[in-house]
Amino acid sequence: MTSEARAKNIKVLIFDVDGTLTDGQIFVLPGPDGKGIESKGFAAHDGLGITLGRLGGLRIGIITKRNSQTVAIRARDLKLEFVYQGQAHKMNAIRDILAKTGFTLDQLSYVGDDIVDLPVMRECGLAIATANARQQVKDVAHYITPNPGGQGAGRDAIDFILSAQGSLAKVIEQYLDEENKAAEVADVGVGNM
């Protein structure tokens, strides 16, 4: 089955975070209490892409092995439906998502970049690797994004799925429609304000 055919069936899209929605760098700044303050950079293209995906009917979330307040803030700003942090075995979170939604593995797409993502990528309907992914991850992927993580790979994945489903152009027009209140507030984040 082609990657486009697989994409037509996708209802749920799940992202890894570090190296996928970020470039993989983790900055730890010393705090006044002696503890580290973690920061990461996220691509605005991915944020808008998540809004387009949601407008296109995709249910979107993240699963990450790390626990990070930065990720929690970004997930809240993007209004992600599924947020799982501290997941050493990501298939546990996937099973929970499928139980909550009633969808099946072939209706789920996962975007990853490193070997921690392999168990999900080997099972899901559409496995997507970022351009910067480890070779083992690219080897199991049905699609590899043109851009690396943290530089638009998330948007690449969403554009690919919505294009295969024939809805990308329509969803873009919905987003641009001044009368569409859902699109107007969809990706307005506040950061840590």
Rank of each mutant, 00 (worst) to 15 (best):
I50F: 15
T104I: 01
Q174F: 03
F160W: 07
A153G: 02
E123P: 00
E123I: 00
T70L: 00
A129G: 03
G86R: 13
G125Y: 02
G24P: 00
A88K: 13
R122Q: 13
K79V: 01
I60N: 10
V140Y: 10
Y84M: 03
I60S: 09
N92P: 00
A7W: 04
I63W: 04
D114N: 09
E123K: 14
A44E: 14
L48M: 15
Y175D: 10
V111M: 13
G154M: 10
I97L: 09
E4C: 02
A88L: 13
V185T: 15
L58A: 01
A75P: 08
T145M: 08
Q85K: 03
D18T: 04
A133P: 06
A131P: 02
T145S: 10
A141R: 13
V140T: 05
A75S: 14
S109Q: 03
A141N: 05
I63C: 10
P148D: 05
Q136V: 12
D177I: 09
I161S: 11
Q85E: 14
Y175V: 02
G149A: 05
L176Q: 13
M193S: 12
N9Q: 15
G47W: 11
S109N: 03
T22F: 14
G41E: 04
Q174L: 11
G31C: 11
L21Q: 05
Q87E: 14
E4Q: 15
L21G: 02
I115K: 10
G31L: 08
R134V: 13
G125I: 00
A133C: 09
T70F: 08
I161F: 12
M91R: 12
N9K: 15
T2Q: 07
R66N: 13
R134K: 14
V116N: 10
G56Q: 14
V190H: 15
S39A: 14
G166S: 10
E178Q: 12
T51I: 02
A5R: 14
R66E: 12
F160K: 06
L52Q: 07
P119Q: 10
K90W: 01
P32I: 12
R76S: 09
D46H: 11
P119Y: 08
I73N: 11
A88F: 04
L52F: 11
I115H: 05
D159L: 02
V71K: 06
G24S: 01
E81Y: 01
I10G: 06
I144R: 12
V71G: 02
N180K: 07
A129C: 07
I60W: 07
I161A: 05
A169C: 00
K8R: 15
E173C: 00
H142D: 15
A153Q: 06
A164C: 07
L13C: 01
G56M: 10
Q135Y: 00
L52Y: 10
G102F: 01
G191E: 00
L126T: 03
I128Y: 15
M1L: 09
E179F: 00
R74S: 10
G24C: 03
E38G: 04
Q107M: 01
L58E: 06
D177T: 08
